[in-house]
Design a protein around this nucleic acid. Structure first.
Lengths: 183, 183
DNA sequence: AGTGAAGCGGAGGAAGTCTCCGCTTGCATG
DNA sequence: CATGCAAGCGGAGACTTCCTCCGCTTCACT
């Protein structure tokens, strides 16, 4: 790739990140192009679809996921406290951009989604936490990772769409934790 | 209201129902107008916003909710079976139209949503079922109706966006039931 | 039949998406 | 350094959808 094209690509990702943060994942793509100082044609050549741009942005988040797992697992207390801390991290990760939670979670079950490989990182992180719970004999029988991811994705989507505060989200996570852990 | 206006209004609701069912709640309103045989101006006079049209359609669903509660509560078995049957009914009601689950649930917490009064019916129905559980001493302490509605709304939204079958939804409802009931 | 108001419809402006193609620019090569 | 050309750019414009405005039609009452 030519050096100028590379520069444009990076600048577009950077600007798109800012625009999507301000105006949600549905923000006009032409504005992304305008603020990046390129024509719409350039944007659409680098990222043929809106999803391609989402994917490029999320790629930068993926690297941070394992740090969030470790942070949650370092929480004081028992399995329940650790699990809830992780659930809060998970929802926080998914609600970084307005509209992202629903898209990310929808891509989990879908083989041919372009986002899937990226989003699998979230599912893998959740699985590692659930495995930790299982190792301590705290996980209920028959609890499936994908189902928990979808439940958390649903909570994140509701939080996103209703602009819920963490204190409004917590009780929902409590219910899920009760449903996931042996009591 | 003039008789012709009344006819147009009813016809618009009928056609919108069909169009939204086929193409989701985001279907072009101009197509609704076209298929109803009226101009866009007529549609927008009767229903100034997309939400007003959604509201008019949902009004016809509201009447059926209590029947669904009764159907679920007539399920063979204990509290858990009844609750799960109701959860399935609830998710089914919310996923009637593509995109409806998220909107309905988002309106629950929002005082000034035009959909709120209609959607409150769903929340009330769920509350009546939870109360039934509580009366049998099966409800965990501190479980809040709005939180359960949001959890179910999240599940319905995921089911909607990922086109999940009932057999894929069931395990998620199991987790919520475990989280809601005493074990 | 006449009349006034209610209602209609479609032209058209605004906003967004996405493509096409003529022009520009980076860079490998002599 | 000069040159050739493929890679890349940008913006005009076609298309879609939303929504409004206003001249014309139709209803309903007398």
């Amino acid at each position: 790739m030519r050096a100028d094209a590379q520069r444009n690509r990076e600048r577009l990702i950077e600007v798109a990140h800012a625009v999507f943060k301000e105006r949600g994942l549905d923000a006009p793509l032409d504005e992304v192009a305008r603020r990046a100082g390129v024509g719409p044609g350039t944007l659409y050549r680098h990222f043929p679809t809106r999803e391609a741009l989402h994917e490029a942005i999320m790629a930068t988040w993926i690297e941070e996921v394992s740090a969030h797992v470790e942070k949650a697992m370092a929480t004081e207390g028992g399995c329940r406290e650790k699990l809830l801390a992780w659930f809060e991290e998970y929802v926080g990760l998914l609600t970084r951009h307005q509209g992202a939670a629903a898209k990310i979670t929808a891509s989990l079950g879908c083989e041919d989604s372009p986002l899937r490989t990226k989003c699998q990182t979230y599912a893998d992180a959740n699985e590692s936490v659930l495995t930790e719970m299982a190792d301590h004999g705290m996980l209920r029988e028959g609890v499936d990772n994908l189902d928990v991811c979808r439940l958390l994705g649903g909570v994140a989507t509701m939080a996103d769409q209703s602009s819920l505060e963490p204190r409004d989200v917590r009780p929902m996570l409590d219910v899920i934790a009760n449903g996931v852990l042996k009591s």
